[in-house]
Simulated assay, not measured.
Amino acid sequence: MDYHFDFSFLTGHIGELLGGLKVTIELALAANAMGIVLGFVLCLMAMSPWKIIRFPTQLFIEFFRCTPALLQIIWFFYCIPMMVDFFIDPFVMGVLALGLNLSAFNAEAYRAGVQAVPREHLDACVALGLKPYQRTLYVILPQALRTSLPVLLTNGIGTLQQSALVAIVAISDLMYVAKSIATDSYRPLEIYSLVALVYFFMSVPFSKLVHIIERRQDAATQR
């Protein structure tokens, strides 16, 4: 292959790439915030003793876990505005699609954490006369969050990477900007290689953090 890499042309596009990176980070942060909070709510609803709450929630979770994220993004972007006959900002639609997808996966992570809470702790809550919301907020949530934290972080990394899918609906994230630059410059190898490195270096610190947390949890379990 007689191809010579030339990254010098990228100096004129630094501002565009930084703008796209900003959008990517904002998307990932907003979707993760939504996923962490809504995921726990969905977990509690899916474990509800009332079937009228449990069944629709489980159906919601399975739908978002068992359909492609790309399809969900496209559906939110094109179908919802047609259904409500109202324009919604594309960034908001991207956050909703990514956030709901993440919430479904986080709900399952939380469920494993809730089920790991010792029965003795719940019995102690009853003995102390704690109300259901107090038991959930002060006993179940902290323990479930600690147990499921590695999975939540891993899911968050996946959402950061999946945020590149919003480029398909013309949201000007890092991937969309890179695609535009590659089309204009006819230098796809350089720009896509650079973008791949950016995603890599954003994900690696969180991946290392997951390993650290897992090692500490394993050490605490062995004591």
Rank of each mutant, 00 (worst) to 15 (best):
T159A: 01
I181R: 00
I181S: 07
I168F: 15
A178Q: 01
K179C: 01
T183Y: 02
D184M: 00
K179W: 04
L165W: 15
T159H: 02
Q161T: 09
G156W: 03
V177W: 07
G156M: 08
Q161K: 15
V177I: 11
M175I: 00
K179D: 03
Q162F: 07
L174S: 15
V169R: 15
T154M: 06
G156T: 13
Q161M: 11
N155Y: 12
L174P: 15
L153N: 08
P188C: 07
I168M: 15
A164F: 03
T159C: 06
Y176Q: 11
I157T: 08
I171G: 15
R187A: 13
L165K: 13
Q161G: 13
D184C: 00
A170M: 13
L160W: 07
L153A: 06
V166G: 12
L160Q: 12
V166E: 14
M175T: 11
G158M: 07
M175F: 03
I171R: 08
V169Q: 11
Q162R: 10
S180R: 04
V169T: 15
D173W: 10
S172N: 14
L160A: 12
P188G: 08
M175Q: 05
A164R: 14
Y176A: 09
L153W: 05
N155A: 09
R187S: 08
L174A: 12
I181D: 02
V169M: 15
A170E: 10
Q162E: 13
Y186Q: 10
I181Y: 04
K179R: 08
G156L: 13
I181W: 00
A170I: 08
A182E: 05
Y176T: 02
Q161I: 05
D184K: 00
V166A: 15
L153T: 10
A167C: 05
D184S: 06
I181F: 10
D184W: 00
S163R: 14
A178S: 11
T159G: 02
A164G: 10
D173C: 03
Y186H: 09
T154S: 08
S163Q: 07
G156K: 09
A167M: 08
Y176S: 07
S185H: 03
A170V: 04
P188D: 09
S180A: 10
A164P: 01
D173P: 12
